[in-house]
Design a protein around this nucleic acid. Structure first.
Length: 436
DNA sequence: TTTTGAGTTGTTCGA
DNA sequence: GTCGAACAACTCAAA
């Protein structure tokens, strides 16, 4: 490697941007000579079920544009593939590393990974500096006066907004310090094929919702045939936008949308404080529900062949695009858990596989909400009526016909369950399980 | 400690 | 067609 003297490594993970990046800002400001690094983590990649995962294509594209930007500043992204611990083991012997900077990742897997890397670096006399970047508040920054975590959204959101008002939103103008990147434009890129993947087309999404969209957000967000939602989930997941910029925008334009951003942090702190939710019900009594291991019905749901137009359209949209409108997510989730009485974890895993904007905490929290097993969840007797939801939110069938055109034919698919019978079965099953 | 009010997104039934 | 109550109690948060 060119350049003289020690380098500071900045490790990109879920913060793939050069602007308003907290950890990058601190690395540039406090240390300098910053070598940017990204690791394709084979522990994660090996678990992906599809060789043409849209998310990996998206990630790869973003790294390409990150590298382009870095090269315009005389630097380049060092990209490695492997398990991160081994990668760092070889990096510390190859490079004169003075410190490693990165941003927090509180998912269970990441916590363990980072602990091992911190230990390895410490053994080599290298400090790992980590920073809050992907949320406004994290861990136990928003808790009740007695120090315990909130488990109900509304008081959490109240306290969150109060703290925000007191503290304001910080800025980390890393983009102004890029002259301090380590000068080295010799790093080669790793092709998707070298990782064992193929390119999958995906629909690019605006990074910033327009003021116009936010002005109508509260009114239009439940209409799946309209572009009424922000769709920035994918950007928040990969950190291609700054949450701080989004919250500023929300505060100026839409309190309804701001609450959605707070929901994201609510579920993140639920996962942090109650890690058992990753595999089981938040309320343990709900683990007694006798889920039906009905693989045929599950497959019909996955493939969008339930005979319920809104459910089928949503499941097709998911498969075809990696996205599903939020209103429809609620309908299909309620349908799986209540009408089919299938374990919410099956649905959670399917969404995790296909959603471009998949985020463990939000996906888990919202599935537990729909199943009625979570904190502050929908009560178990609240069963979405897919026909009524269709009538209410897609009365012209514009959304349905876009994704499931067979519902425009005279002969309609036959429902795999009858609504009233399924609803009664769900309520009775939950009731019995919870009484036991 | 006790009390009180409230709790994302719904549906159904009967007046 | 419209409207309010019931659904099922329970837990949570805050005073």
């Amino acid at each position: 490697m060119n350049g003289i003297g020690p380098v500071t490594v900045f490790w990109f993970r879920r913060d793939l941007r050069l602007n308003d990046n907290h950890g990058l800002y601190r690395a540039l400001k406090d240390a300098g000579n910053v070598q940017p690094l990204f690791i394709f983590d084979t522990d994660i990649l090996d678990k992906l079920e599809d060789r043409n995962d849209r998310r990996l294509s998206y990630l790869h594209d973003r790294l390409g544009s990150l590298d382009d930007q870095l090269r315009s500043h005389g630097s380049s992204l060092l990209v490695k593939q492997g398990d991160p611990l081994s990668i760092f083991r070889s990096l510390v012997s190859d490079l004169p590393i003075s410190a490693v900077y990165t941003n927090h990742d509180h998912e269970p897997y990441a916590l363990g990974r980072d602990r091992h890397i911190r230990d390895l670096l410490r053994e080599n006399g290298i400090a790992l500096h980590t920073f809050k970047d992907q949320t406004i508040f994290e861990r136990d920054e928003v808790v009740k006066p007695d120090g315990n975590p909130y488990t109900v959204f509304t008081p959490f959101a109240r306290r969150w907004k109060q703290r925000l008002g007191e503290e304001g939103i910080p800025s980390y103008p890393s983009e102004q310090l890029l002259g301090g990147m380590h000068h080295n434009s010799s790093h080669e890129r790793i092709a998707l094929e070298d990782l064992g993947f193929r390119y999958a087309l995906y629909e690019a999404v605006e990074q910033t919702p327009s003021i116009d969209l936010l002005a109508r957000y509260a009114a239009l967000r439940n209409t799946p045939s309209v572009e009424g939602t922000s769709r920035i989930g994918v950007h928040l997941r990969f950190g291609t936008v700054s949450i701080r910029e989004m919250v500023r925008l929300a505060m100026q334009n839409s309190d309804t949308w701001l609450n959605e951003l707070i929901w994201r942090e609510f579920f993140m702190q639920v996962l942090w404080h109650f890690p058992h939710v990753e595999t089981g019900a938040f309320r343990k009594a709900y683990d007694a529900i006798p889920w039906r291991d009905d693989e045929a019905s599950f497959t019909a749901w996955c493939e969008g062949r339930t005979g319920y137009p809104l459910v089928d359209a949503g499941m097709r949209e998911l498969r075809e695009t990696g996205f599903m409108h939020n209103r429809v997510r609620m309908v299909v989730a309620s349908f799986l858990c209540k009408h089919l009485l299938i374990d919410w974890r099956w649905g959670e895993a399917w969404f995790a596989r296909w959603l471009m904007d998949f985020e463990l905490a939000s996906n888990n929290g919202n599935w537990q909400w729909a199943a009625g097993t979570g904190c502050d969840a929908a009560p178990y007797f609240r069963v979405f009526n897919p026909a009524l939801q269709l009538q209410r939110f897609d009365p012209q069938m514009a959304y349905v016909l876009k994704w499931a055109p067979e519902y425009g034919q005279l002969e309609l698919p036959k429902p795999i369950v009858e609504h009233k019978a399924a609803r009664d079965r769900a309520i009775a099953s939950y009731k019995t399980a919870l009484a036991g």
